[in-house]
Nucleic acid binder design. Structure first.
Lengths: 74, 74
DNA sequence: AAAAGTGTAGGGTTATAACCCTACATTCGC
DNA sequence: GCGAATGTAGGGTTATAACCCTACACTTTT
């Protein structure tokens, strides 16, 4: 995949993710510690650089304490 | 990933996906044709066998004409 | 009855996400 | 001022999703 359209979605999602994390005032490393995701990858998610998996989304929703459907509402 | 918990989520999501497709009375092959996803993989998603990516979720939401957040509400 | 469509299942290749690491400049707390 | 924390960036390895295919039994359509 990774069409132009998808990259746009990824970017938008990344911004949403970043804003959720910042609202909670936690760092990449802190969030990575809470959920089972590498901090370097969280950064890449927020930059929209990688096409994360379902599992990663679950972990992020857990780590940010946001229902999955809200995490995906952007 | 693919912890036991994640597999459980994947299964639940798969059931949700299957019910959305069946509501629309379309086959694996038909859905695969609408969205840019392989029919064999759609089957595997519904069975909860694979940990799909963000892009695949976007495609499925497009193909099923369901907002992403609703696709993720299960 | 024949043809088309469907669910199921398996497999092979390639691209890439997950998972680790290091390093450094800047910011913040003390 | 100093040390800790943070954002940033890059890289290497391994597991696996995406992307193709074939095949077959069963159901539906014509």
């Amino acid at each position: 995949m990774a069409s132009e359209t998808h990259k746009e979605y990824l970017k938008r999602f990344g911004e949403h993710l970043a804003s959720l994390r910042k609202e909670r005032k936690i760092s990449y490393r802190k969030l990575a510690q809470i959920c089972d995701v590498d901090f370097a990858d969280i950064r890449r998610y927020e930059k929209g650089e990688i096409n994360m998996t379902f599992s990663s989304l679950i972990e992020l929703s857990k780590g940010l304490a946001v229902p999955l459907k809200d995490l995906m509402d952007f």
